[in-house]
């Protein structure tokens, strides 16, 4: 192998302190005849972050991933991975990318080990001891033929395949499918380690709890359109929350009505329930002017937030 080839396979495209975005799409569009699978998608994923890509079935998640991986070609727009055009440098970029397809299928007659050896041979420069480590962590039996594996165990082989070249950018399409809770936990720990090393994870999922646990930011796609990109924290702040208050004497609902951010008030003599968004300072201030005995803040339900984005409006 020549020097350039060796460097391509073994040298990270990301150096310490490099803030080149791991993934950028600009007006990325994909049409299938009349069907608009992706529409003018503008997205930027920072290095070292775990980015959750959410959306209902058929929203365009897989189409977006397959487009940036150069498996299908955009109708218009561009994608840049690790600072390089995803089409022009497709082959070179794959040295630095790990990919797990959604609805994973492997070669049924190969064992897990043979499968990984096949892909490792095609990649070159994969450290087999690292594969053994990954198999240990995910509790994967590599001696069985793929056709004899359950879907969860097949998924583990797929995950090892995606992780084995220590990629700068890991693109995972519905990675938790079929994994039991213990393995899911280990897998999420692995994702956090990757982010801690400055590498990037692009995680497509419709499992909200998983995304909430591991992602720094989320993008939500619906009907091919990116409807929101926010940090999980910001999403929660923006969400409508509820404050349940109990007073020593009846309080009129009208005292809360005019406060900024209040959406609705329900009063039942001494009990008042207020739905609001934003900061609660003004709300508390108004309540403190009365005989406030008890108060309870009900946390925003992330699932409810996602559903508002998912639903057709």
């Amino acid at each position: 192998m020549d020097v350039a080839g060796f460097l391509d396979q073994n040298v990270s495209l990301i150096t310490a302190g490099d803030m080149t975005p791991a993934l950028i799409t600009e007006r990325l569009t994909k049409h299938y005849g009349e069907t608009r699978a992706l529409v003018d998608l503008d997205l930027e994923v920072e290095p070292g972050e775990v980015f959750g890509f959410l959306g209902p079935n058929g929203a365009g998640k897989t189409t977006m991933i397959r487009t940036v991986l150069d498996l299908i070609y955009p109708t218009s727009g561009t994608a840049t991975l690790l600072g390089k055009d995803s089409h022009e440098f497709a082959v070179e970029l794959r040295n630095h990318i790990g990919y797990l397809p959604g609805d994973l299928e492997l070669y049924p007659t190969l064992t897990g080990r043979e499968t990984l050896r096949y892909f490792a041979n095609l990649r070159g420069g994969v450290d087999w001891s690292y594969i053994e480590q990954l198999a240990d962590r995910l509790d994967s039996d590599l001696t069985k033929k793929v056709r004899d594996l359950s879907s969860g165990n097949k998924q583990k082989v797929g995950l090892i395949q995606a992780f084995m070249n220590k990629p700068d950018l890991l693109i995972l399409d519905e990675p938790s499918t079929g994994l039991d809770p213990l393995v899911q936990q280990e897998f999420q720990a692995m994702l956090r380690e990757i982010a801690a090393e400055g590498r990037t994870v692009f995680l497509s999922s419709h499992t909200l709890s998983e995304v909430e646990r591991v992602a720094d930011r989320v993008g939500i796609i619906r009907h091919g359109l990116l409807v929101v990109v926010e940090s999980v924290e910001n999403l929660k702040t923006k969400a409508i929350r509820r404050l349940d208050m109990e007073f020593g004497a009846p309080v009129p609902a009208s005292i809360f009505d005019s406060i900024d951010g209040v959406r609705s008030v329900e009063a039942d003599t001494t009990r008042v329930s207020v739905s609001y968004e934003g900061a609660m300072k003004d709300l508390l201030h108004a309540a403190m002017g009365h005989d406030l005995i008890n108060l309870e803040s009900v946390e925003a339900d992330l699932e409810e937030i996602f559903l508002t984005y998912y639903r057709d409006t």
């Binding site: 498996l71 070179e92 970029l93 794959r94 397809p101 095609l122």
Partner: peptide, 14 residues
């Protein structure tokens, strides 16, 4: 048809 082409082409090969 067996859905393995995506994985194959995810490797650095033309």
């Amino acid at each position: 048809e067996n859905r393995t082409m995506d994985l194959l082409l995810a490797n650095p090969i033309k």
